[in-house]
Nucleic acid binder design. Structure first.
Lengths: 238, 238
DNA sequence: TCATCCAACTTGTATGACAACATAATATGT
DNA sequence: ACATATTATGTTGTCATACAAGTTGGATGA
């Protein structure tokens, strides 16, 4: 019988308690958790509370349960990375700088390693991107898919994972509104962006890693400078 | 009344179902979920199942519940990135390639942007690293802290986040064993690694971004080639 | 020795009851 | 008529009991 910290629902307290015990090694990966009845006796709560707590940890991937056997701790002890949150405009700049680093090299590796299957999918993505090239709001998602396909062509799963993680932030925003406000969406700009995409695409098709790196870096450099000028404008106006 | 996909526990099915409906926008962030009684009627399951499902989504941060009011969808729709799992030796190579891309630029930015506070902490980290330089097992954690401090000095939070994410995989392994087996841990190698660390450190102190990039790239290049040769050896021996 | 069966234990699901809390409708007093 | 209690209703939180379904290990018997 152990006491729990108050101020929350009992199940939430028990979740925190068990999570703590797993983190500090009381229950190591692979270990079997005490049975529900034992947890009931130990913490003096109902089975409902115990089961909801276990249910929560199971949803987190920290536990797996087997009917008739018990609940076991996985080796998923490491915390998962929270979604990238650009936050303010400064954060958008940081994000673009980060993407420039990642995706420049991704494009280069993609050009050097892409398979025939990659080229087929990349063409499909590029065509869709071209179809929405002049649609300021509609080109965001195809744009993301284009970049994601490039990451896949780089033949390194970590570039794909990080690209998906970046995109997880982009997709919901694309459904609602643009992050930065008051950016003129003139056609000349959209045409320029598409020209940049085209040069990236051609370099990858040609298998020219250096050209792909330069094209991608230039592409994200322009975005960075564009947002940066907006930040300066806001800075001088206030 | 809606049917659920079988082949799992009912609560797990309902978790998947609700997660899907939240993902595809049926329940948008801020919306109130149907009450437990309504979910019971709709999916023809007991309240136990409904509550465990909601409990799981709540642990994931997708829902928040308020007693007497209801369950509400948060804007935490984007899923968190799973820990980087190198898996086999091939994965270790992918990880090192990924790190080379990230950390080369991180070191360069750190050299160009580091504050006085950064330099003070970096010196502390480097001294500790020097103290463990010839300890094959004990230098892993100070090594990680050294790299993490460099990421902080780059003044871009995303580089810090990704570095922490990489480290979340390194730390548990450092407590147990080295990932790759049978690597000779001779002193000459450890001395070389430390010399590389020193050149990175000096370049950042000097504020020379180019030198810092070169030093970091060389550092990770060596690791990459070293592991790569191991992979070749294993490949030819089998 | 070996196979079979069974008893005990574990998790999964269902149901009923009540407590705690929030909100809106209703009643009440002025 | 208005402001203030009061009540009714609906919601989530917790407890208890019962049974189903799955697993394990030992007892039993040939």
């Amino acid at each position: 019988m152990t006491k729990l910290e108050p101020k929350q629902s009992l199940s939430a307290q028990l979740v925190a308690e068990l999570r703590e015990q797993i983190a500090n090694g009381t229950f190591a990966p692979g270990d079997k958790l005490p049975s529900e009845n034992e947890l009931i006796k130990r913490y003096q709560v109902s089975r409902t509370v115990v089961r909801e707590a276990i249910s929560g940890l199971r949803a987190d991937g920290i536990l797996v349960t087997r009917q008739g056997v018990g609940a076991f701790v996985t080796n998923q002890t490491a915390k998962r990375l929270e979604p990238f949150d650009p936050g303010d405009l400064q954060g958008v700049l940081h994000m673009l700088e980060f993407r420039r680093v990642i995706e420049t090299e991704t494009a280069g590796l993609a050009a050097e390693r892409r398979t025939q299957e990659d080229l087929i999918e990349l063409k499909s993505r590029f065509d869709e991107l071209a179809a929405h090239a002049l649609d300021a709001k509609g080109f965001v998602l195809p744009d993301y898919h284009f970049h994601l396909t490039i990451a896949r062509a780089a033949q390194n799963p970590f570039f794909v994972q990080i690209e998906e993680h970046i995109g997880a932030q982009i997709i919901p925003h694309s459904k609602l509104h643009v992050i930065a406000p008051d950016i003129p969406e003139d056609l000349s700009f959209l045409r320029m962006v598409h020209a940049e995409h085209e040069s990236i695409y051609k370099a990858i098709v040609a298998g020219d890693g250096g050209a792909a790196r330069n094209a991608m870096r230039a592409h994200l450099d322009r975005s960075l400078k564009r947002y940066s000028s907006v930040l300066d404008t806001l800075g001088t106006s206030t």
